[in-house]
Simulated assay, not measured.
Amino acid sequence: MSTDDFLARFGAEGLRQPDPVAAAQKAMRNALPSRFYESAAVLERDGLFHVALDGRTARTPARNPLAVTSRPVAEALAAEWHAPSEKIDPARMPLTRLVNSALDGVADQHEAVRAEIVRYAGSDALCYRAGEPQELVALQDAVWEPIRHGVEDAIGARFILAQGIVFAEQPQTTLDAVARHVAKIAAPVALAGAHNVMTLTGSTILMLALALGQRDADAIWAAAHLDEDYQIGIWGQDEDAAERRAIRRTEFDAAVLLLTQG
């Protein structure tokens, strides 16, 4: 099977399937092809860093070169392809799937992607707080409030908080401020990373805190799972849930790389 045939068969999964966990599970059900190349490396051509399989540039499902402007991203892509294995498993290649999506989809739909990120800010997870128990209320305040205030100071606008599931409409001035900062994420791969960070955390605020360098990936991941971890502390960890979370974390790490270095 050639590189193009493989990408046409498996790479498009990342474009059609917005849920990274479902995408990975779907890919796992496919019959995995045998590895058909010896090496994966990064080649610099025309100002771009190409992922090359046995010297030949790999291509996305839409037949765009698998090439990016960031060497660290290209090296991470090549590492996915070079990982020791007799089979090619798309479920273990979250960065490749995400970059395929960026190059084949986001590049032509950047305004729609930015609009979706701004729309998320209108019902951001960090703006909806628990009313009880007091331990959780205090934990949310301790972890989420500094992040929210940091982003608010950076964008020059304020978010409205709500308790429970009662919808709190955010001021248009706040959404406009978010839009101005999201517009600064120009590269398609970085924008794809921003969108996936937002989706996996349920929060544009957390994505902006990461993009602005106010928090690192581990802090953002922990903040996004604060409620879940609180419940785990009470009831214990479910094995299936832990497995799904581990898959999401690999997707998150790929998205963080694109957002911060794409």
Rank of each mutant, 00 (worst) to 15 (best):
R119F: 03
R9C: 01
E228R: 15
V21Y: 01
R249T: 06
E80Y: 10
A222E: 08
Q17F: 02
R9F: 00
E75W: 11
Q25P: 04
G262W: 12
A83Q: 12
E243N: 09
T199W: 06
A40V: 08
L210Y: 00
A209C: 01
N30M: 15
A52R: 09
A254Q: 08
V166A: 08
A223Q: 01
R119K: 10
L257M: 14
A58W: 09
T69L: 15
M28E: 14
S39G: 06
L259G: 02
V106C: 07
D108S: 01
A23K: 07
V51P: 08
V118L: 09
Y120D: 05
D238E: 15
A222P: 02
G213E: 06
P18E: 11
A102I: 04
A91Q: 08
T260S: 06
R244C: 14
Y120V: 14
A52P: 00
R59A: 13
G156I: 04
G122N: 03
T250E: 15
A130F: 09
E243V: 15
A209H: 00
N64Y: 04
W144A: 12
T260Q: 13
L77E: 06
S2L: 11
K87T: 15
E169D: 03
E132S: 09
M28R: 15
A41Q: 13
S34A: 12
F252R: 05
R244M: 11
I147P: 01
L210T: 02
P171V: 05
A125S: 13
A62Q: 09
T57R: 08
G150K: 00
L103M: 09
E145Y: 02
L161E: 10
E132M: 11
A121L: 07
H225I: 04
T173E: 15
A23W: 03
G122R: 02
V151T: 06
R16W: 06
I88V: 15
Q109D: 12
L98P: 04
L139G: 00
F36I: 08
R114M: 02
D19L: 06
A192I: 07
T204M: 07
K87S: 08
W144V: 05
D240K: 14
H181Q: 11
S203P: 03
A168Y: 00
H110E: 12
P94A: 14
A217P: 00
V182W: 00
D153Y: 07
P18C: 12
S34Y: 09
D4V: 10
R45K: 15
S34D: 05
A242T: 14
I88S: 02
D46N: 13
E13C: 07
P72F: 10
D216P: 00
D238W: 11
R92N: 14
A222W: 00
F6A: 04
G105Y: 07
V137F: 12
E80C: 13
L208R: 02
V106N: 05
L139Q: 06
